[in-house]
Write a protein that binds this DNA or RNA. Structure first.
Lengths: 323, 323
DNA sequence: CTGAAAGCGCTTACAG
DNA sequence: CTGAAAGCGCTTACAG
């Protein structure tokens, strides 16, 4: 395929001039510009971006690190990122980790090798302390809270939001409340658990470990959660789970077994995905797509040398029929 | 950041030798190899991949072109692609098009500029004829059927699969059957429509345009579909829709209005996502993730110079409670 | 406004 | 086994 030298020769100008036309520089006589453009068209020339990247030192590509894309939470987050990235003419590569540390390290190595200009961690397994070691490697941001001041973060105030949901349940008369968490060791789960313990303390209930369900992420997990609930001797009257997929599974399975909702079992979740609306499930709305959009802009700022900053995304209780 | 020259100097060897170590070439004295590795470690050296790509002429990165990632169909497809790509140590960039022609052209231009080594079209708006003009640009494959012999394709035999679903409905006594399609002008929709017309002809029913719902993709679309159904003077007794999201929306809304399913309204869809299992919706199972895996391998073959080939993914009728 | 030349950081025949 | 040198295809001060 043609390269810049051939274009220059064919158009009867210097390589420099071709490059100027390519990059939209001013100071090129209109006549020459036309000639060059014409030649490019005729020879079907396209720049070799590898050379451009080597020369310029960056690639206009960022990396998005996440456990899996098949959860609505993450695919919405990506949508938001993708939207802003497209506007800015920036590409992105996806690094699926399944929360495996080595996959996260792999992504960081890509950053080090300049494969990408920056990284967005949608969620991670690596500890903040460990990630701190990579600080000099290149710019990255987190879509979760961190007290580490060197990290730019965008997050939902999970503790506060979760507490808001718990208080709503309590206000509705519930005292026997179980919760479902996405991961055992995630940051978000940590904050939610804290909110849970605080809320229990506030109403004088004791914390029961068997009322904290873990690894609840999918519809299928929600269905399993119902089985566990129904096998319990002493049953919680309300279950507050991590996302609408879980609540959908739980709700549908419960309905299937003719459980009175919210009479016998109240259900609350987070996200406000379409499915929760169809099913009439009460939920805490989180604007995930917005978070993705902001995440991208935040990374852009870091890439262009701004100091780290912390951003917060708002949430909102959506009352429907399951509480 | 350190470059290969500094490593060479610090290790007391030539640049060539460092490169050999980096690339795992044989013929490097163990002693030197160790020394180089040590130096790399000490200086925290990482290759600048832009230079590697320029030198080698490829980037180990492919592009995945798709309308949106927030539909389960596509996110599963990506999962399959991602899985194989990770095994092969290949990255991928996502190009979301929303079926906009210029976005698809953009992706093809990236290919031309060597930004990616190849392209997987998960679904596209561009016609086969137009895409044919890009044949010389670089390797790409389609995840849909095409009679164009120059394209590698992997596909579900949509016409056959859809007919299988229709025959199942007919066998159950339905004659007034409506269908829902994802897009008006998609290839898949075309095949499904053909199957529909053939099935109607086979039972001597006339084709009614108002019984073909279009743009039915999401849960919300499924709910709308129910409203349309309920407003109809003459109601179809069965609706066969494009995916489990739509059938879920339709089913839930119908249940909400106390419609007897399948007595008053039979529902069938395609995919067999978890949600169809939870709701007990009959569906045609399509192994989308498998398709993604094979799609990646198919592209790999094209990239390494193999001739185009056509692959088919199997399907299976899953009988549950809605028919 | 224009061009010759150095530089980006690798890989890889080629010669030893 | 090893290294000097050419080459990948651009960009960008610098000098005019």
């Amino acid at each position: 395929m043609a390269n810049i030298r051939e274009i220059a020769k064919a158009a009867g100008v210097s390589i420099t001039t071709v490059s100027r036309v390519l990059n939209g520089h001013p100071y090129v006589k209109e006549e020459k510009r036309k000639k060059v453009l014409e030649t490019i068209e005729r020879l079907e020339y396209a720049r070799n971006m590898h050379a451009v990247h080597l020369s310029k030192g960056f690639s206009n590509m960022i990396g998005v690190v996440l456990p899996t894309i098949s959860l609505p939470y993450f695919s919405e987050l990506i949508e938001g990122i993708a939207e802003e990235a497209a506007k800015a003419g920036i590409h992105f590569a996806l690094y699926q980790t399944n929360y495996q540390l080595e996959k996260e390290i792999f992504a960081l190595e890509q950053l080090k090798q300049r494969q990408v200009d920056g990284l967005i961690f949608c969620s991670k397994a690596m500890s903040d302390e460990e990630l701190l070691n990579w600080r000099e490697t290149g710019p990255f941001i987190l879509c979760q809270d961190s007290r580490e001041q060197h990290f730019s973060t965008i997050s939902i105030p999970h503790q506060e939001a979760f507490r808001c949901g718990l208080d709503f349940l309590i206000e509705k008369g519930h005292r026997k409340i179980a919760i479902g968490l996405a991961r055992k060791n995630g940051v978000n789960s940590h904050f939610r658990l804290t909110a849970y313990k605080e809320a229990l303390a506030a109403i004088g209930e004791t914390y029961r470990e068997d009322w904290v369900f873990e690894r609840s992420l999918t519809i299928t997990d929600g269905r399993k959660l119902f089985s566990e609930w129904s096998r319990m001797e002493e049953k919680p009257t309300a279950v507050f789970v991590a996302n609408d997929q879980v609540s959908a599974g739980l709700y549908l399975e419960a309905r299937h077994h003719n459980i009175d909702i919210p009479g016998k079992l109240a259900i609350l979740s987070c996200d406000n995905q379409p499915i929760s609306e169809v099913l009439g499930i009460s939920t805490i709305e989180i604007k995930i797509k917005d978070m993705g959009r902001h995440a991208f802009r935040l990374l852009q700022k870091r890439i262009s040398g701004h100091d780290p900053e912390k951003q917060i995304i708002s949430y909102k209780l959506v009352k429907r029929l399951t509480v």
